[in-house]
Design a protein around this nucleic acid. Sequence first.
DNA 1: ACAAAAGTGTTAAGAATACACCCATGT
DNA 2: ACATGGGTGTATTCTTAACACTTTTGT
Lengths: 221, 221
Amino acid sequence: MLDSPVVSTDSVVFQLQNSKLAVLLIKRAKSPSKGEWALPGGYNSAGEVTQDAMVRVLRLKAGLDIKMLPLVDQLYTFDTDAVGNNGNAVVVTYMGLGRDIVLKASDTLQSPTFFAVENVPRLPFNHNEIIEYAHKRLAAKLTYTNSVFALLPKFFTLTQLQNAYETILDHKYDKRNFRKKFLSLKMVEPTDKYLHEGAHRPALLYRFRHQKLQTLSRSFD
Amino acid sequence: MLDSPVVSTDSVVFQLQNSKLAVLLIKRAKSPSKGEWALPGGYNSAGEVTQDAMVRVLRLKAGLDIKMLPLVDQLYTFDTDAVGNNGNAVVVTYMGLGRDIVLKASDTLQSPTFFAVENVPRLPFNHNEIIEYAHKRLAAKLTYTNSVFALLPKFFTLTQLQNAYETILDHKYDKRNFRKKFLSLKMVEPTDKYLHEGAHRPALLYRFRHQKLQTLSRSFD
DNA sequence: ACAAAAGTGTTAAGAATACACCCATGT
DNA sequence: ACATGGGTGTATTCTTAACACTTTTGT
């Protein structure tokens, strides 16, 4: 074995909650920063590939099966000079997108909880920076791919779709133009179902034409 | 020290040569694949951050000072199951863009040479895959940023600019529309110099308005 | 009947595309 | 004078952006 930096993996798992972008945090079980909120992550053991480390850590610390995440992307690899007193580390980060993730509480888990991104506390290491970076990348991806599909339920209203874009891109859109654009992009198609949910006209439910990542023919902004 | 995968760094350095995209390769000094062409790369030592490893390797093996590269980006981090018999490795890859790079031959270097991307031989490890990936990323970057500036000399003609786009994106553009678009993007501006280079009308030289990476207001395709 | 969100169309400005000829130079 | 690449304009189509009222439902 060569003398080399240590490899670890951190994951940013996003979903929408109450029309807000939310990120999964856990309570750290070990020093440093024991008991503080942080991104789920951990060291890779020898022979373990970073994707596998991510899967293992999410299951072990958050009780989350990666199959719950329709989209997972590598984000960026950070170099840190020193982690605790273990010398330097290379931290490979991933972003996962999901919907309707229900976390079960359990003594064996580390209090996995979704925090609205705007309410994320100050986190140890560079975890706040990682979340910011992930948010920016997600925003960029929404403009040139169909990646929202991974954040919305199978059936959704155009208002929900618009809300997703508005929260993530932090920008208001005109309802008529937004709808025209998305229908012309052929990203979504109407179903024959309606969502009845209040003292107002029910909303037609749509679905994505593909549940795979695709690049849009014209980008969105 | 924990038991962890080995970290190494590979670099894809591009420049334009005879209106073709070219990539820097070296001859490997060590097994495995000793004597074969490969991307410049190597293991990180403990305490060494991946960017520093890249700088060190390029200087040591290719005699290239990173300051010659106006733009360097992290590309992707690959996991490989086994490298030689050293167990698995995490390979952090970078892409550097340059212009007018003159390589000096030297016994202490490993025959650094630029190969036109279309003539790159079959390389060991996943180096062909890495180059393909870098090429795709570069193509994408040209469409939404001003990153060509790093590949062209300070003063250049619009034909040279168009050639750069055409080679990298593998697409022909209409001369009039191309010029209209780039001038309206305000990416470049005319100077008062001309390039005289043959039995034809001399070409007006332009320069970039910024030598820093910027995102374009409207993307290009 | 009222409150609440769903749904819908037109016009104007800007951007993209398609397309062909004259200009300035070196030999 | 000719060969070579540099340089330019217009018409059409498509895309974007701005903007306000009617519909359907639950209470």
